[in-house]
Design a protein around this nucleic acid. Structure first.
Lengths: 147, 147
DNA sequence: GACTAATGGATAACGCTTACTATTTTCACT
DNA sequence: AGTGAAAATAGTAAGCGTTATCCATTAGTC
């Protein structure tokens, strides 16, 4: 509760529901997926409000935006250090524990860059859904006339 | 030259110019930036052709697509193992050598994932342009009436 | 040179995200 | 509780990067 009341910020019903629902999930939803979920509780909320609050919550450090994760942004309310696998096929994301330490960035100097802020390890994988879909596709290619 | 003639693929003027120009660059251009460059040699080429061939070249393993959520995709013809820093502000990308080894993925098992394919280390940074812009912004905030 | 399939050019459509505007809500101070 | 200024919301339009469509053109093969 108290973490909802950051200094200089107001708490609205929409904002708190968005944060609550995101915290219930470990599925790293997209803005639209979260919108569909929040809409069950707040039927009149607009998608723009979800986007606006996801920006707000990210900038105030309450959630994370998964940056290097494909085409659509995904969000994560788990603030503990962990890493992610992303399905190369559908973009689904899962957590990886425990984290292998990412390298230090203090001593890295790159021409054209003023500072290196952080490093992170990312994993590409194939989720079970896509693996199954791929398998049945290949089967269809081998037996094109089977039902 | 011979690497332009993959089996089952045709080489066209457009495709080869796109690949040539991308190979000249280490700036990891966006599709549109590359389009502007290629247009100097092929004034009648269309942006769609650039996109189509970037997909083709990526899928045939001749170039890499640098994906990051929310940002514009960038492309890299450097196929040697290396890593990238991305400017958190403008999305500019620079190379990092030598690479710190990314962890093995053979023994990693994640619920919901059939396979972990690979891991990679990514860096976030602040490029010099954005650092300078940020500095002068802050200066303006402190001295709002100066010039 | 003719044929077939792939490719290109131009443009429309699409999906995700942000911007805009009028209205409503929050919160500090009475 | 009431008031008012600042901020947030709903609804919608616009923006941007990317993909799809459609017909004309080109490449490679015979």
């Amino acid at each position: 509760m108290s973490d909802l009341h950051h200094p200089q910020t107001r708490m609205t019903q929409q904002r708190s529901v968005i944060l609550e629902e995101l915290r219930k999930l470990d599925t790293h939803p997209t803005a639209d997926e979260l919108y569909q979920i929040v809409r069950l509780r707040l039927p009149r909320i607009s998608l723009g409000t979800v986007y606006r609050n996801l920006v707000f919550l990210t900038e105030s450090g309450q959630i994370m935006r998964l940056e290097s994760a494909g085409n659509t942004n995904r969000f994560d309310a788990n603030m503990q250090p962990h890493q992610h696998v992303r399905c190369v096929c559908c973009g689904a994301i899962a957590d990886i524990f425990p984290p292998v330490m990412a390298p230090e960035t203090d001593r890295i100097h790159v021409p054209g860059f003023a500072r290196i802020l952080q490093s992170r390890i990312e994993y590409d994988g194939l989720c079970e859904k896509c693996a199954a879909a791929k398998a049945s596709e290949e089967a269809a290619a081998y037996y094109p006339n089977s039902a």
